[in-house]
Design a protein around this nucleic acid. Sequence first.
DNA 1: AAGATGGCCAACCGCCTCATC
DNA 2: AGATGAGGCGGTTGGCCATCT
Length: 320
Amino acid sequence: MMRTPISINDENGLKKGPWSPEEDKILVDHIQKHGHGSWRALPRLAGLNRCGKSCRLRWTNYLRPDIRRGNFSDQEENLIINLHALLGNKWAAIATHLPGRTDNEIKNFWNTHLKKKLMQMGLDPVTHRPRTDHLDLLNNLQQIILNAANIVTNCDINNNALIRLQQLMTLSSNSSQSLINDVFGINNNNNTHSNNYLQNFYDGSNIGFSSSQIIEPNLQNFEDPLQQLVPQACRYQEYLNGDFTNVAASTISSSLLPNLVSVSHRCDSPVKVEEDNMMKNAKECCSPSSTTLETWGDFMNEDANDAYWKDFIEQHASQP
DNA sequence: AAGATGGCCAACCGCCTCATC
DNA sequence: AGATGAGGCGGTTGGCCATCT
């Protein structure tokens, strides 16, 4: 949506944008003398070239004499948090409990400060309960790494990328997002491709692909395999979830899937031993019964086979 | 020094509710 | 009962400014 450029007139010739001190004075003087009455009639009566709605907003959010400006106190902050836990985003209702504060001011304060503060405290700013998205992220990372590992089996991949993948796989349940960022190179400007995908991933939003974008994973031509691996794994993850925004899952050919084979059959990488271990870990730890990365170390014994993966894929592909 | 980036927040937009006819 | 308009509400935008690179 385009925002109205600063200080222009709308189609009715009414001014929009920031208020000048002169306009403020006219509005205050008029309301002090006559009250606001009908907001729609006010601009004409006061001699302002504004719409009534703009006048009302300016008065209630800025010019009202009982408005209390300045930083929020700790008491106010706590009150807002508690009221938000009770009322949700009912800013007007919350504002009634904070004399002199406007709903707009509280909303802005929430969005710019309190939301972040709660998240840093490990609380979900919507539910006010301990955050679970970290666990969700780690659970999904298991899946992504599993899928990445499957893709790895079908291509040449350099040692560096494998080491980074292994770093990911050994993340504990205490892993911070910054560590994950670090492993993924999230703060590396050259890695914007994976950044975008992962950011969407963090946000929990869908990653939409058109049918032409869904391609068979092939990393052989990329300089940085991991950089391509992540989005590919995300796509594969989406396929497994039947979670395409633009394409019905049923239209996606099974030929688009990477082959699900054991490393020992396909991969000629010089770091085969590490891959073997990695694949074992990935397969075991991403079994449908696994719920957190804490379980990763508990599944080192059983060697998964193709039948296992067929079942696994079917289970996941059938999930909504 | 200069461009890029990110935070802040005033103001706008669109939708909703409610009162009135 | 339905139409209309006014006011209220929450989400979003984008200009300004400070900080970073």
